[in-house]
Design a protein around this nucleic acid. Structure first.
Lengths: 192, 192
DNA sequence: TTCACTTCTTAATCTAGATTAATTTTTTCT
DNA sequence: AGAAAAAATTAATCTAGATTAAGAAGTGAA
């Protein structure tokens, strides 16, 4: 089943009954997304949550100088959405674009909310996911203003060795908060 | 009741029964914390969650240059803990210190976990809280590397006008990611 | 197998914000 | 109230990283 991957992910954090989880999984739609296609564009209302089965996405916004700023990446077994737009029902400030050919499962906010209304186990699942996200966000904020650009890059490499090859360097530079030129400089320094 | 404030907070996001919520509230301990006292020190294991009834706290760590870096503030009706230490059972990298004379409610991780085992409504409550935290963290990350120091300060002021007076400027500068000297410069520029 | 496009690199110059250090103002404590 | 400590200001100097610009190297489609 195409939804098995999500099923396993849920079961690794919570314990819904077989019926409950199958009912839930029935509400997802499968999508194949080509590299550079958008799941969400700035200005749109985010109405879905996406679970990444395969591939890679980046969330970015256009800053006041017109430059793309990467806020997040998403890879296999991550949930993706613009939470701010989704929860507050406001136009999104973010773009979500595939960085590889990808496969996702999609569910509407209404359907998800309906399940969250009654299900202890799904509330547990998302609570635990969000706790982990919180830990990651906190650590990221801590890194962001404790470390120099060079240290940021080295730390990121250390924690995510395989990911560094996965996206163009200019995206990684943007995510880490500096320019591609500066990343080049760092990399040139390390070689000899 | 000293726990009424927390009760109201929970009831504004979830709908536990009267018995359920009262059972839960029975597990909290009230603490009065004097300005500059610590709730948690670097190296300790964080074993509690705190709900702030009144007052203000800062979470900070000591960076590799020996400087205090403020990661977060907490005020009335916020939950406080080092999530990373609490969840992963690792020694904390953070200090949590009162920035005012404060009042908190305290619950141990074990007791909280026991309630989360069975309660749909408490899982809902914390899931919703964490969604809001996520939105705030995302926005903060976005601000952090889209805005200049001056813009950061002005934006923070705009969103939190009353808070700016509440903590020393050196803490605010640290939270915003720059030095107190630079904050002085920004403020001097605005006056005339 | 070439044309077009995207990504990466290098180097010169520039700037926001850090650092240092001295001075003033505010707060706290007895 | 007065001394001591904590916090804020000011100014001079310094630096990590931005900006600009140009070329090199990959990548891909026809």
């Amino acid at each position: 089943m195409i939804t098995d991957q999500l099923k396993n992910h849920i079961l690794s954090f919570a314990a819904p009954t077989e019926k409950e989880i199958n009912d839930f999984l029935n509400n997802f739609e499968f999508l194949a997304i080509k590299n550079k296609e958008f799941l969400l564009k700035e200005g749109q209302y985010c109405k879905h949550q996406y679970f990444i089965l395969k591939g890679c996405f980046r969330c970015f916004f256009i800053n006041h100088k017109g430059a793309e700023k990467v806020v997040n990446f998403g890879i296999e077994n991550w949930w993706l959405s613009d939470f701010e737009s989704l929860i507050n029902q406001t136009p999104s400030l973010l773009n979500i674009q595939a960085a590889e050919n990808s496969k996702v499962l999609k569910i509407s906010k209404e359907k998800l909310d309906a399940f969250l209304e009654d299900s202890l186990e799904l509330n547990r699942y998302f609570r635990i996911i969000l706790e982990k996200v919180r830990v990651a966000d906190q650590r990221r904020i801590q890194f962001m203003y404790n470390l120099s650009g060079e240290e940021l890059y080295n730390t990121f490499r250390e924690y995510n060795p395989s990911f560094v090859q996965r996206v163009p360097q200019y995206m990684l530079a943007s995510y880490l908060g500096f320019t591609p030129e500066f990343l080049s400089k760092i990399r040139a320094k390390k070689k000899p």
